[in-house]
């Protein structure tokens, strides 16, 4: 595997990890809830995106619809479920979240929704492939890298330049006190779910297009793998999650290229997780 391919795979895979995990990180940062059902929101995004793409033929409409619906589903999960568990021990929303994830995934497998099949998502042609002196970036990867770049800039601006971003940071550091300085926590947390879930929905579409495949159980691996990323990133830190996404993607890519015939990708991820937790339980980038 060439250096160029390692770089490209790391960036692509890292981007996907980040888009999925950042919503989890934001939720964990403020509510300390391990929101497993986030992976179901990602699958819903892929499903909605594909449905709208089939209907309209427009990738952009599909992406926007996926983000809107996923965002809304996220808000509904918060206001309809977690909201009533905020004062409970953290194990209560955690177990609920697992239940919610299995419930949604099971529903999605019904024939009137996604059924037990893989569906093609042929929107790769929307983006051009780019040829650079060092190699070529295929069109689906151009899509993932550009859109993740846009999301990163938007997140950075929201977190550092807006009152909402300040409110999120304050709530993540001290939720009770954030309320007492006048931050409407109900609204701030709902918007937090909205954005995090919309990004997961976008990730669903991007992954669906990248692998040309959308199916009801596509959230299975991300449901636990996103936790590898947020644990490595130090639980609740957005910049930590960003670093951990690319670090994990890099480790996977390199190890896959060298010992891939023994260790598949996901085994590598969890080996890294177990190894890190044994020696740095606060995460690679945690304090």
């Amino acid at each position: 595997m060439s250096l160029w391919n390692i770089l490209l795979d790391t960036l692509t895979q890292g981007s996907i990890y980040f888009l999925i995990a950042v919503g989890l990180t934001m939720v964990y940062g403020i509510l300390k809830i391990l929101h497993i059902a986030h992976a179901a929101v990602y699958t819903i995004g892929a499903g909605v995106g594909l449905a709208v793409f089939k209907l309209t033929g427009s990738f952009w409409l599909a992406l926007i619809a996926a983000m809107l619906v996923s965002g809304l589903v996220g808000v509904i999960i918060y206001r309809g479920v977690y909201f009533y568990m905020l004062d409970q021990p953290r194990i209560v929303p955690l177990i609920t979240s697992v239940g919610l994830f299995l419930l949604i995934e099971d529903l999605l497998q019904k024939p009137y929704l996604m059924g037990p099949y893989q569906h093609a998502f042929p929107a790769q042609e929307v983006f051009p492939s780019i040829t650079l002196p060092w190699g070529t970036i295929p069109n689906a990867q151009v899509m993932i890298l550009t859109l993740t770049g846009v999301a990163l800039v938007a997140l950075y601006l929201i977190f550092t330049r807006t009152r909402l971003g300040l409110a999120w940071q304050a709530a993540a550091q001290d939720r009770e006190m954030a309320g007492s300085v006048g931050i409407n926590l109900n609204r701030a947390i709902a918007l937090n779910f909205l954005l995090g879930s919309a990004l997961a929905g976008a990730a669903g579409v991007l992954v669906g297009v990248f692998y040309n495949s959308v199916y009801a159980t596509m959230g299975d691996v991300p449901s636990y793998k996103a936790f590898v990323v947020i644990v490595l990133g130090g639980m609740g830190s957005v910049t930590g999650t960003l670093a951990a996404s690319f670090l994990l993607a890099f480790a996977e890519t390199v190890l896959l290229a060298s010992v891939g015939y023994v260790l598949p990708r996901d085994a590598i991820a969890f080996l890294v997780l177990i190894f890190v937790l044994m020696f740095r339980p606060q995460g690679l980038l945690g304090r």
Binding site: L166, A170, Q173, D174, V181, G182
Partner: peptide
């Protein structure tokens, strides 16, 4: 209950949220 990872100035700004 200061916002521990923020600067003094950011804490004060949040007081006037």
């Amino acid at each position: 209950h200061v916002f521990r990872d923020m600067t003094v100035e950011e804490n004060l700004r949040l007081g006037a949220y």
